[in-house]
Design a protein around this nucleic acid. Sequence first.
DNA 1: ACCAAAATCACCCGAAAGAATGAGTCCTGA
DNA 2: TCAGGACTCATTCTTTCGGGTGATTTTGGT
Lengths: 161, 161
Amino acid sequence: MAFFKPFRFIAGNRETLLYGVALAVLLFVLKWLELRLVIVNHAFEIYIGAIAVLFTGLGIWLALQLARPRVQTVVVEKEVYVGEPNEFVFNETEFRRLGLSRRELDVLLGMAEGLSNHEIGERLFVSVNTVKTHSSNLFSKLDVRSRTQAIDRAKRLRLIP
Amino acid sequence: MAFFKPFRFIAGNRETLLYGVALAVLLFVLKWLELRLVIVNHAFEIYIGAIAVLFTGLGIWLALQLARPRVQTVVVEKEVYVGEPNEFVFNETEFRRLGLSRRELDVLLGMAEGLSNHEIGERLFVSVNTVKTHSSNLFSKLDVRSRTQAIDRAKRLRLIP
DNA sequence: ACCAAAATCACCCGAAAGAATGAGTCCTGA
DNA sequence: TCAGGACTCATTCTTTCGGGTGATTTTGGT
């Protein structure tokens, strides 16, 4: 029964003992009032009132003792360094600022993958010479002198992942 | 107390009305019991017990209605995704797994900066030939055939930033 | 003191990269 | 229609890269 469930919260024997003593005192008071009732007959309403008050107080006390506390949820923000999604955002601004062409970017991407000029040419369906032309222009615009430098700079400028 | 908990759902004036009705019924029951008491004298203890039970319930109900609810704070941690510091952590495990030497790593770092073999040699105070030897061994261990491929692979393996 | 790994250097050769120059095609905007 | 940009391709030449081989010296650990 749910009524007795909260009794489990009463810790230790001392509290149980205290509760028993309180009940004994209560019964004693009741008996005393009962004796007084024989003498003063008109005190019946007072007696009933006393009972009501006493047990109302007992009810209140019980409720306060046993009432289940309401749960209040407090959200605490905790910083968690989560594994970064490593998302690459293409730097469109820098791309236009440098005046790179689409084809030059294609060549650059191929270079970053470790492809040779010949392989880049095959991927883009153009000759090696064309790739070389693009790469030369690319180097000029990036102000570098080799493909490795181009890759390094492009990575820093967030033109390639 | 779970037994009386539904009483809390009664809201506004209906609650007051209900309280009045409950009191009326209570008084009626008391009056009825009082009448019965004249006939059955020995029912006095039952009467007292009923009073006690009723007012205990009333007290509990009152307490539940009026008492300030005890709150229990539950802390819920909420993950806040903080901007990643983009910090580079050297993959020591992969480094040893591949059996790379210190010098080979030095050469690799130079390559990643876009330096030529000659420039790497100057930085490391060795001849170009030495750099070429290191790079050759490096390529074998990384299973690649060019410096750009080496850079690409090393980046994926988190050997270089 | 010895061994193994690492580091150093040298030489050759072919392939690739890069610089420089010229030129043809296509497309778009003035 | 005309200029300019992007794309394409070619040629020549120089430099660099990368593979292969061999050798000597340093270093670190047993």
